[in-house]
Amino acid sequence: MQTKETQLQQMLSQLRTRLLVMFAAVGIALEEALLALESANKGKAQAVIDGDDLINAKENEIDELALSILVRNQPVAHDLRFVVAALRMVSELERIGDEAVDIATLTCRMDCSPSPKMFSTLAPLVSNARDIYSQVQELFKNPSAVKALELSRGDVDSTQLEFTVLQTIMTELSREGGENCKHTNLVSCSSTQGILIARALSRVCGRAINLAEQIYFIEQGVNIKHLPAEAVQSSV
């Protein structure tokens, strides 16, 4: 058995470290964007927007490193799966960063603060996005095929949650608008923001689930992306 790390192993460790850093950077951007939204803090929101360039730069670095590993070492088996998944994951992470930027941009453009009622409506989706992202981040640190599979099957819950939130907002919009025409603009502005934020949060959940699918692929070598539950069960 060799004790010294090969060049490939060193490069794979480097790739893993850079992905962990990217997970953390995107996680911070998401959290800051949500805090900025909750506190209507435009300065904090602007910081998230400004920080996106760093996330984009990290994506490029990881892309280059993954390509370099493929060219220099032609990895196979788990190593190959890891590099292929890294290329897919880095793209998902960058897009979660973009969702954080979208939420921050909405916060910056707010002429009307979302009502506390709107926050309470969005709260389950905010909590779900935070929870799924932190779970997938932890899963990448400590990979487990069982947990990855479990997490990846959560997309139905996220979709249902988004639907419920949107339905609540729409009901609120029609009711408030009908009751008091003076407040219609205010309500519709707040509701539009709410809908856009709900959409962004739902996408965060979807992308986090895609990340879980990639972790499963790394561990098991089985691609469960786009597979219906029954097909996943049979492939497992």
Partner: peptide, 18 residues
């Protein structure tokens, strides 16, 4: 064999770990 070998021994050999 080259994407998901069943045995760790195979994996370790084809990935250059021994």
């Amino acid at each position: 064999m080259f994407t998901r070998p069943s045995l760790k021994q195979t994996e370790d050999y084809i990935t250059g770990r021994f």
